[in-house]
């Protein structure tokens, strides 16, 4: 039978993290316990940020003296919301276009694939970088427009593959006997969508969304290595960072996890906690989502397996005993 135990546990975990992050202003310190210098009793400076993990600072502090665990808790909502909304938009647009292509214009599928052929041969990270360059040097624009631009690009990158997938699956479903007989009895395309495809679309839609969340998380993280942060970059740079060439190092404006990884990835020789804390957090997020994905995949595939098993049972050959044609049978042998 279908079981959704892991899905329920995983999504409630994600929801709890999201809620905690959204409600952060209610309970967390607004300045993330910022403390750059430590003085002794006489008022002399004995140490300066960043501090390594300790009892006081659970995951250490950033160069700016902010507690890493508070920063992470504050920033995770942007990561989750962005990944989720990008995935949902990809699946909605891709799914609709895919179904339209498959039902009304099957000849278009070839041309659609040709048009987006580039995306099949160039790793998506390269395309994403080329398309994201305008946001690296913005001239005083609102964050909302930067974020909108980024979301559009992220949705666009995943759109062709989702569309082709959706069209393929719809093609497969159209070949099944129940859809064929529905057509024979005079059903129109809309009726087919409503009655026959919708139940499948729900399960496949959820599975696609989860897969797309994973790929979005990956690409956000890879983009951040190239200083293309979700939510724009803070041009003042990281506090107290000395570049040998005197350039300010761009910092993520939103404290979003991928951005935290990207802005600090050069620092891990001296302060590994600043990079490894968000990186491991990201890993945990991906693990949870992957767990959900596995279970959903098993459910969809498992149902098909069960059906074939049932069929096989019916096709069992008749027991040999019935084929006796002799005049008498031995009852006990």
């Amino acid at each position: 039978m279908r079981r959704y135990k892991k899905t329920i546990i995983g999504s409630s975990l994600l929801l709890i993290i999201l809620l905690m992050s959204c409600l952060y202003p209610l309970y967390g310190p607004a300045d993330f316990n910022q403390k750059v210098l430590i003085h002794d009793e006489n008022g002399r400076v004995i140490d300066r940020a960043p501090f390594p993990p300790s009892e006081e600072h659970w995951l250490g502090t950033t160069r700016n003296g902010e507690d890493v665990h508070w920063v992470l808790l504050y920033g995770v909502k942007f990561t989750l919301i962005a990944a989720f909304s990008v995935a949902v938009l990809r699946v909605i647009f891709g799914g609709i276009v895919g179904i339209i292509i498959s039902l009304w214009a099957p000849f278009l599928k070839r041309y659609f694939k040709d048009f987006f052929l580039t995306m099949r041969y160039i790793p998506s990270i390269l395309i994403a970088i080329i398309l994201m360059i305008p946001i690296k040097f913005p001239d005083d624009v609102a964050i909302s427009s930067i974020v909108t631009y980024q979301l559009i690009i992220l949705v666009f990158i995943g759109f062709p593959s989702v569309t082709v997938f959706a069209a393929d699956i719809t093609d497969e479903l159209l070949k099944t006997s129940f859809v064929q007989s529905s057509y024979l009895m005079g059903a129109g395309n809309f009726h087919i969508i409503k009655r026959q495809l919708l139940p499948y679309m729900r399960s496949y839609g959820i599975l696609f969304t989860v897969q797309q969340i994973l790929s979005t998380l990956q690409i956000i993280m890879q983009l951040s290595i190239f200083e293309l942060f979700l939510g724009g970059a803070n041009r003042a740079g990281i506090f107290g960072y000395d570049d040998p060439y005197g350039r300010p190092k761009l910092a993520s404006m939103s404290y979003e996890w991928a951005g935290l990884i990207g802005q600090n990835f050069t620092e891990f020789t001296q302060m590994p906690w600043i990079v490894f804390a968000p990186l491991l957090g990201f890993f945990v997020l991906i693990l949870i989502i992957n767990m959900i994905k596995k279970e959903l995949e098993n459910n969809i595939l498992g149902v098909q397996l069960m059906k074939t098993k049932r069929k096989r049972k019916k096709e069992k050959p008749l027991p040999a005993a019935q084929t006796h044609t002799g005049k008498f049978d031995f009852l006990h042998d």
């Binding site: 580039t118 398309l131 946001i135 005083d140 624009v141």
Partner: peptide, 24 residues
């Protein structure tokens, strides 16, 4: 021709979507 136009479209997409002051 389709492949070429797709290529041109993808790589010039940033030009369609100009980042305005407060909207795209």
């Amino acid at each position: 021709a389709l492949v070429l136009s797709g290529f041109l479209f993808i790589f010039n997409l940033p030009l369609i979507l100009g980042i305005g002051v407060d909207s795209v």
